[in-house]
């Protein structure tokens, strides 16, 4: 179990070229840095993608992680976002063992700003986007209903505006 204080959010702008993810994943693997989550998608400039990595390392190792990442030729820019200075967001999808008509459950989803996006006879699929901490809390609550499938995207982030 790793403590959240070891979690650091690193975002990298990378060239949109074949093999970039292999290079990043390979670097983390061979140097023993632990990836908690990794999200990647093209930016508004199609030549580049943005990679958001939540990495589990001691703070004194973080600079080493950044320096090693920065050495990759395809990594154009890299920043560490202090959680206090970043707007973070993540998406959660979950299938929960709740049938239709469970008002208490529907209220719970509505209260956190989630959406019910599908219903089976005995299951319900919900979606929630937001700060990873809120998702953690929501996930915890869903557990009491029984989660049969869960998918989270990993955090993405941008620096706060002020």
């Amino acid at each position: 179990m790793t403590s959240a204080s070891r979690h650091h959010l690193v975002t990298a702008t990378v060239e949109n070229k074949a093999g970039v993810l292999l290079r990043i994943a390979g670097l983390f693997s061979r140097r023993g840095y632990n990836i908690i989550s990794l999200a990647v998608a093209p930016t508004d400039d199609e030549r580049f993608s943005r990679v958001s990595i939540v990495v589990d390392v001691e703070s004194n190792l973080l600079q080493q992680v950044i320096d090693q990442l920065d050495k990759l030729i395809n990594v154009v820019a890299i920043t560490e976002l202090d959680p206090a200075d970043a707007n973070k967001a993540e998406l959660l999808l979950a299938t929960v063992s709740v049938g239709a008509g469970d008002q208490e459950f529907d209220d719970l989803v509505a209260r956190v700003g989630g959406t019910i996006i599908d219903r089976g006879s005995e299951t319900t699929m919900v979606q929630l986007a937001g700060d990873p901490a809120i998702l953690n809390d929501f996930e915890q609550k869903l557990r009491s209903y029984g989660i049969s499938e869960l998918q989270r995207t990993g955090a993405v982030a941008l620096a706060k505006l002020s």
């Binding site: 093999g19 292999l22 290079r23 390979g26 670097l27 061979r30 030729i73 395809n74």
Partner: peptide, 9 residues
């Protein structure tokens, strides 16, 4: 792929 970790690029 094989040489990604043993080349500068």
């Amino acid at each position: 792929g094989i040489t990604a970790s043993v080349t500068k690029h």
